[in-house]
Design a protein around this nucleic acid. Structure first.
Lengths: 252, 252
DNA sequence: TCTCATTCGCGAGCACCGCTCTCTTCTCCC
DNA sequence: GGGAGAAGAGAGCGGTGCTCGCGAATGAGA
């Protein structure tokens, strides 16, 4: 699937923009991307559950069986759309974060949070696809873990920058971790710059969970009769959350 | 649907344990509950997406069309299972919370948190059904909002008890809300005992989102390569979260 | 330039799904 | 006991994912 032998598999033609040598390869890449586009469109309008290869085939004017020349299965299509979604969210968050000055930690943090929420509100089905319930038999292939971490990487970087400047997590979020708690964080600590302390990671993970939980609650309708629906109410609530999360991270 | 006129609708026969007068009513209630049981079973093993009325009919040895005498549609079955799930989670949380002494606020809070996580780990598909992505065309009927709030009611009660004892939300989570932030909380403030302040509600909602976010991340596999998978790692991380949430609520 | 393997599109078909309709049988109430 | 209504069965409609075999188009090597 991911071997890079000279004769690249046809499935890679779309992903690798380089060298669609023959005309056949070129048209193949084109049709593949048309299929992906149609899938994205259906996903956006009708949700993942309603995504149907037959409907896509109809829309593109081809026989349903022909689609299988380009996409192995419905699951494979879904996987590609998931990667797409992660990348789309990651790109949105990165660009918004970059707009803030590098030294403006609260600004960068707030930019990431708002980017996540805005993207989720604009692309609810994509958000549900990546952060909602996973489809039953489905296990995320390894290809998804890279794009999946783009957003959290931004938060980690903010944490690291804060640590480098000596702005630790305040006592607000209570001191030391238990030994077991520290051990549980071993995998993430292993891949992180050493200046990020375990308590900062603990706080960061909790903020991350809070952010996704908040966005999910809003998006999935659990805020009915809880938070107002007048224009600005949801925004105001989220803004309060963001400022408190920043305080918990000690970058308020 | 919920009128309680003398001649109760047949759909209510299963819900109301009282007076299945005739033998026909009795067998109807029995078959209905068999259908619900089979649905619960399929939901638990295969997930909501794979829930099929035809499969249930096969399992019960009846024609697929016969099931429609008891259940109006697949959506209606799903709705009943959703209510079931809310009630099951609510009952679990209530009983666990009741085990702690009424004055032991940290104990009650921790009991609720752990009850939610334990129930979710034991019933992942049910959890996904109620807190995961909603099925596309589906809108939760009014019947679900009562059972849905059982768990959050417990947390609110803890907050109210804390307020009554003057244990407010600490300065840890930063002081006053903005005016817009307070306005956004109007719906929930309206139905709450007045001793619960707006900052306490803000903190409570954030903890609630954090709890659901944390459980969702763990359940939906987003903790891979982040938190250890050795026995106890996930428990230890969650315990750290709980103690910090309690601190944020000022009941640590 | 010709040839032959590869690729592609198509249609039919299988098994499954939700849901509807009709027809018959059974049961309960008056 | 008879009639109304509930229950069950079966066929059928339109939809799904996916497979298979066929013929046509294509491109690379002789």
């Amino acid at each position: 699937m991911s071997t890079r032998v000279p004769a690249a598999g046809p499935a890679d033609a779309a992903a690798v923009p380089s060298a669609p040598r023959t005309a056949r390869d070129r048209v193949r890449a084109e049709i593949t991307s048309e299929i992906l586009d149609a899938g994205r469109r259906h996903l956006a309008t009708d949700g993942a559950a309603a995504l149907s290869l037959r409907a896509i085939a109809r829309e593109l004017g081809m026989a349903s069986s022909a689609v299988y020349r380009y996409v192995a299965s419905r699951d494979e299509l879904l996987t590609r759309l998931i990667i797409d979604a992660y990348d789309s969210l990651g790109a949105a968050a990165e660009s918004r974060q970059a707009a803030a000055g590098r030294s403006d930690l609260p600004g960068r943090f707030s930019a990431v949070c708002r980017a996540v929420r805005d993207w989720a509100l604009a692309n609810p089905n994509e958000y549900a696809l990546i952060y909602g319930s996973p489809v039953p038999g489905y296990v995320a292939p390894a290809d998804t873990i890279g794009p999946a971490s783009r957003v959290s990487d931004l938060l980690v970087q903010i944490l690291a920058d804060a640590a480098a400047r000596g702005i630790g997590v305040r006592a607000a979020t209570r001191g030391e971790l238990s030994q077991a708690g520290r051990a549980a964080l071993a995998p993430v600590l292993a891949v992180l710059p050493p200046e990020v302390t375990d308590t900062a990671i603990q706080a960061g993970l909790m903020v991350w969970a809070g952010l996704l939980g908040t966005v999910s609650l809003e998006l999935f309708g659990q805020f009915q009769n809880v938070i107002g629906e007048k224009p600005g109410d949801r925004d105001a609530y989220f803004a309060e959350c963001v400022s408190r999360w920043a305080a918990q991270l000690g970058i308020g």
